[in-house]
Design a protein around this nucleic acid. Structure first.
Lengths: 342, 342
DNA sequence: CTGTTAGCGCCTTCAT
DNA sequence: ATGAAGGCGCTAACAG
């Protein structure tokens, strides 16, 4: 088992000083003769030398690594966005460390600390509520950080997110156009005022009102994942039942589908369904699911790009909120005729 | 913007030496008096001091970080297993860096190098073919590494994987019992001899033969993701068509479902379907999908545990192959009566 | 062009 | 019980 090679070994083998090797590694070839250069090159390959990035990071005070903390990795949105972020980072020679806070503010806090201790150069976070002071302190220090998907109350900073009101506007309009009138919106827990959920409900209300339809509070439901069954029972036991549902996200969709499956409610026919966030089986479900999609790839690309720019320039700019446009994919879950695939 | 605190700042504030602070950080309280200890404690909290793990890693020659390289993150299997790995690591104070090789050996190689340069303490990898020498060298140096899901040809080392033959045995037996006789198996590309695919086909053949059924080579198809459409066309144009299909993995399943959807082939009724690897929509698909499931959580937990043990003990043991038992979840895609949900 | 030097922040004998 | 000193592997002035 060969000992790990260091810059000193290379220097000795190439009969130059450590600094020259270091220059070589950092591609400052101006500082050495042609012949020295090849000697170093050869020494490196013969010894199979690999620089130690830990040592380099310590010296340079920069790790070329960013941290990404997502609120909940179970959302397809998270994984899609992460892939885009990794793409950008890879291209620019940055590594990413992904952390899943599991909707738990404690965990989020712990990850922030671990990542900072690891000296990551910046942070992308899909925030949960509850760590306002931590973020505030970081921002005051001008530490590079960009938020994604959610606004943090009381924080004025760069954020990339969907035009959520527009998302539900698209959904409601499409449902109305297709003859549905009693539209409910259901989503996951509202207790933490998670931006997309709140804004999607606002957009829902606004669009209904704009169409002269009275908003029925009992048609708006935010519930914990484990109480969907009762919640939907309640919704379907109303005197005036909804004839269409907007699902606020993919986790919600799964619960709705479980429910309609169990209770033999036919989507399209018995109830219209539109879901926000594209899921893998959207196109092959029976019936195929009309979907409001986010441009996840662009959003991921943009957060990463913004963060890397911040890290590089480190000049202080005014924070800006980047809204992305949702799009509608019209399929059959919003056709009353039902299951037909055409 | 406050400068980052170091051990020296703490030492000064607490009026002790750097070494004492270091002892404190490493919880060697025997080496200091009660009173010193609280002084240090206070200094740390007042300064909001956070140790720099980069410096610590350099000195200790260990990063408390492991690398995980998966062949393709798009498999649900990857993400499930990763979650289990992260659980174990978190508990033991280790971080994980996840890399997706995208079925590309070059990328895999690059990630190995990057991770080693980052001085990760060990590696978990779902290997693609083509990096045999790299792995071989690492193993010879007794570098901690554990493989997952796939055997590497010509490498004798610790590996955690499914009893793949048993998986297709479960599938075939169940189909036969339910009256299907002409069973095909389709999966993704066979060119790289990816272990699960090969073994699942072997198990399929073996079980058919054990039941006195002649194996038809035209019922065995491994294809690239982008040519499923033609491949399935060919399969369904056979004089003797299959009456049931075993889907080798989740990506394959999506292609099959797209195909049957487009061609209006009714699963269960027109063709039986069993899929290996549980997917999110398995239970709510119409009809619900009979599935061979892997114990992904246990598998992830086991690889991580084995790796961490290796890192800790660093004694050389004989490599062992850990096979896990698949299980069958019987649902309706293997009932000829078709779509009914009961 | 090349080498010398002085750290980066922390840990670890070894003295005291 | 505490401190001094050396060094992990690399970088970056600054000399030469």
């Amino acid at each position: 088992m060969s000992r790990k090679m260091t810059i000193a070994d290379v220097a000795e083998k190439a009969e130059v000083s450590k600094s020259t090797v270091s220059q070589f590694l950092n591609e400052r070839f101006e500082y050495m003769g042609e012949e020295t250069r090849t000697r170093v090159q050869n020494a490196i390959s013969e010894l199979e030398y690999q620089p130690n990035v830990v040592a380099r990071s310590l010296k340079k005070k920069s790790t070329s690594t960013i941290g990404v903390i997502v609120a909940n990795i179970l959302h397809a949105y998270s994984t899609q966005v992460i892939r885009a972020i990794e793409n950008v980072c890879n291209e620019k020679g940055f590594s990413t460390i992904i952390c899943n806070a599991d909707d738990n503010p404690e965990k989020e806090k712990k990850y922030i600390e671990t990542l900072l201790a690891k000296q990551v150069d910046g942070l992308i976070v899909v925030p949960i509520s509850g760590n306002l002071e931590t973020y505030d302190k970081l921002l005051k220090q001008n530490y590079p950080i960009v938020f994604l998907d959610r606004l943090v109350d009381g924080l004025n900073t760069d954020t990339v997110l969907l035009d959520n009101e527009r998302a539900s506007e698209l959904a409601v309009s499409h449902l109305l156009k297709n003859g549905y009138e009693d539209i409910a919106i259901v989503t996951t827990s509202l207790v933490d005022n998670v931006t997309p959920r709140i804004e999607r409900i606002n957009g829902y209300k606004r669009t209904l009102e704009a169409n002269g339809i009275t908003v029925r509070p009992e048609f708006i439901r935010g519930m914990e994942l484990n109480s969907f069954s009762q919640g939907l029972d309640a919704l379907f036991s109303l005197d005036k039942k909804p004839d269409a549902i907007i699902s606020g996200n993919d986790l919600t969709l799964m619960e709705i589908l479980k429910y309609t499956f169990k209770n033999d409610i036919k989507i399209g026919k018995d109830i219209g369904l539109i879901t926000i966030d594209e899921v893998s089986f959207g196109p092959i479900h029976s019936p195929p699911l009309t979907t409001i999609a986010q441009p996840t790839f662009e959003m991921g690309t943009e957060v990463a790009t913004i963060l890397l720019k911040k890290i590089k320039d480190k000049e202080i700019k005014d924070p800006v909120i980047h809204r992305h446009e949702p799009s509608i994919i019209i399929r059959n879950s919003t056709k009353k005729e039902g299951v037909s695939s055409e």
